[in-house]
Amino acid sequence: MILEVKDLEVYYGSIRALQGISFYVQKGEIVTLIGANGAGKSTTLRTISGLLTPRRGEIFFQGQKITRMPAHQIVRMGISHVPEGRQIFPNLTVMENLLMGAYTRRNRSEIQESLEEVLNRFPRLRERAKQLAGTLSGGEQQMLAMGRGLMSKPTLLILDEPSMGLSPLLVEEIFEIIKSINQQGTTVLLVEQNAFMALQVAHRAYVLETGRIVLSGMSAEVQANPQIRSAYLGEVEA
């Protein structure tokens, strides 16, 4: 088990955003958390990567407890979080953004190797390497955010809403890339509003509702569930 989350409770002030959720991710999987706005998907991810501190519950990564570890140390453990809204650094060049992704790494030739891999995966970034990241289009920014996330050579890649605000064509492209990243050995934890696409690529899925997991299973099972079909996949029950 690569990631194990146990009875996680997170508060924003007095509001209980996560009401004790438990789930796990196994090596080599793509696991998706789906659910409506405000269900607690991003909160879960932000707690795993150390940006939020849970009130109760534990998080284990490769058998080690990472609950309450500061975010900058969690990155070093091998978790890379590509946040919602991309959060690229607009005042840095595309190249500098990518190098920031490798901030925790020391070995220059290995960093160079990862850089080549990322630039081959995202050829557009190579073209724009010297440009300020703030001048990129939305799709390019998402690719930069993902490329930057890969630069730390993570064991677990966390993606928060990678398809947000992108055209259908780009969404397809992004999900293809997620699949290929996973096939090359990176475990992926994916949060998506676009449940349909997420269930297409993920092996397993958890459905969140107001801070609780209400359903879990193999993607195909979740996808077949009539309630899920009507609530998240936009299908009217026959």
Binding site: S49, G50, L51, P70, A71, H72, Q73, V75, R76, S80, H81, P83, Q87, I88, F89, P90, N91, M100, G101, Y103, T104, R148, S152
Partner: peptide
């Protein structure tokens, strides 16, 4: 200077 949390996610203290 851009965003404390985004920097943290890169491993910046």
């Amino acid at each position: 200077a851009v965003d404390h949390n985004a920097a943290r996610l890169m491993g910046v203290n």
